[in-house]
Amino acid sequence: MNEILLFVRGPMFVFCFTFMVLGILRLLIIMALNISASIRSSAGREFGQGETYRELFSWSFSFTRLFNTARIFSIISIIFHVGLIAVPLFLMEHINLWENGTGMRWHHLPGDIADILTLATIITGILLLLYRIGTESGRFISSYPSYFLMIHIIFIFGSGYIASTAYNPISYTGMMIWHVLAGNLLLLLIPYTRLSHAFIYPIVRVVTLTGWSFPYNGGRRVNKKIFGNEQIEI
């Protein structure tokens, strides 16, 4: 069991983490190339950069827009995301692992706060999942990945929390193997599912603006491709 744990924590984790980083880099590079191609095709004319930055920064750093309607949903979602990002990055055990592997170390969360955040993430995750399952609109718009990814994240947090408490039904090593395997799977999934929003969400508004910059003579070229003539009867 210990050898399995060492393997999944060691070489397998390194492989999965590298896969995630390379996958995200690939995504970012493709998006940057597409954005610059779009800007060039609209000949660099009035692109509305001022509007982009204003919208980008006002949304990323303003929380007032979250509290217009659907307030409870927004608060639950924020708590979920805070725990989701803070616990993996600032948990003492995770930082110890990083230090063993790379020598880097940074500040960790106090144990009580980490426990509270973990529990908060699990509870808010379950509430969000119940929203998807329990409401008609939630069920209508959700698909298998929506349910699976949320259950997976709750499992990772749950298994990590249970392994560190006295209520552990199976051995520490066993629970840890489940935890790390599930975590590795999540790392593999991040670049190729909607979880990539963690890294590319600020750029989406810029992509939207490129969508609105229509290329010169685009309509005529489409007509030519479809009907063989640039001008058609309306």
Binding site: N34, I35, A70, F73, V204
Partner: peptide, 22 residues
């Protein structure tokens, strides 16, 4: 798609949409 800038936009949206129904 071949004659416009919609391709990258649709690509990004189809990748990232969370259906959070906000």
């Amino acid at each position: 798609l071949a004659s416009s800038n919609y391709g990258p936009v649709l690509d990004t949206y189809s990748r990232i949409t969370m259906h959070c129904s906000r």
